[in-house]
Amino acid sequence: MKINLLSLAGVTLTSLLLSASAFAHDGLKYDNPYARATPPNAVNSAIFMTIENHQDHERNLISVSTNIAEKAELHTVEKSGDVMKMRQVKSITLPAHGQVELKPGSFHIMLLNVKQPLVEGQTIPVTLTYANGDTENITVPVQKIMTGMTSMAHNDEHK
């Protein structure tokens, strides 16, 4: 069986170009996103992930939305004396050619008043909105509750 090397090279080159253009389309990569499963009677949850910015300019994540909660907000955690408190932030800056890790005890997406329990194994749709008007729709898997934020007090001042 003969293989036409020129045809094979063309297919390989085409595949590489399509992969590169798909990656370069938005220049953002979302690594290991997950939402915390909710224990019985819990009304809030959080989403974590690493967002990589492969662009030459910084990006500002300004809002998030999902149909599984009444509100979704960008938050960070600040230490006030001996107490860790969550605070809503207006944006999360993604540095050019850098990344930001949304993780327990730091930046994260807060889901307020979830409409139904979040169960391990299900997925939830999330829309991220950037300052330039771009939006990204991602699907986030729900995982078991992980440690890290259980002792933090939540600031009830939601805007």
Rank of each mutant, 00 (worst) to 15 (best):
Asn155Met: 09
Thr66Phe: 03
Ser106His: 13
Asn67Thr: 11
Thr12Ser: 14
Lys79Asn: 13
Asn67Tyr: 10
Asp134Lys: 09
Ile62Leu: 07
Phe23Met: 15
Thr135Lys: 09
Asp26Lys: 10
Lys144Pro: 01
Met110Gln: 12
Ile3Cys: 08
Met84Thr: 15
Phe107Lys: 07
Leu118Asn: 03
Tyr34Pro: 04
Lys159Gly: 04
Lys103Ile: 05
Tyr30His: 12
Arg87Ala: 13
Ala96Gln: 06
Ser63Trp: 07
Thr14Ile: 10
Met49Lys: 01
Asp82His: 15
Lys85Asp: 14
Thr14Ser: 11
Lys2Ala: 12
Glu157Tyr: 12
Ala37Asn: 02
Leu13Pro: 05
Thr93Lys: 07
Asn4Gly: 02
Arg87Glu: 13
His57Asn: 11
Glu73His: 14
Glu120His: 04
Pro104Tyr: 03
Ala153Asn: 07
Pro40Gly: 00
Val43Trp: 06
Tyr130Gln: 01
Met1Cys: 10
Thr127Ala: 10
Met149Ser: 11
Ile92Glu: 05
Val83Ser: 14
Glu78Gly: 13
Ile51Tyr: 03
Ala20Met: 14
Thr150Met: 06
Leu17Ile: 07
Gln143Tyr: 02
Ile124Thr: 01
Asn41Ile: 05
Phe107His: 12
Val119Glu: 02
Asn32Met: 11
Asn41Tyr: 05
Gly133Leu: 05
Gln116Thr: 06
Ala9Cys: 08
Val140Glu: 01
Leu17Asp: 05
Arg59Phe: 03
Ala37Pro: 01
Ala42Ser: 01
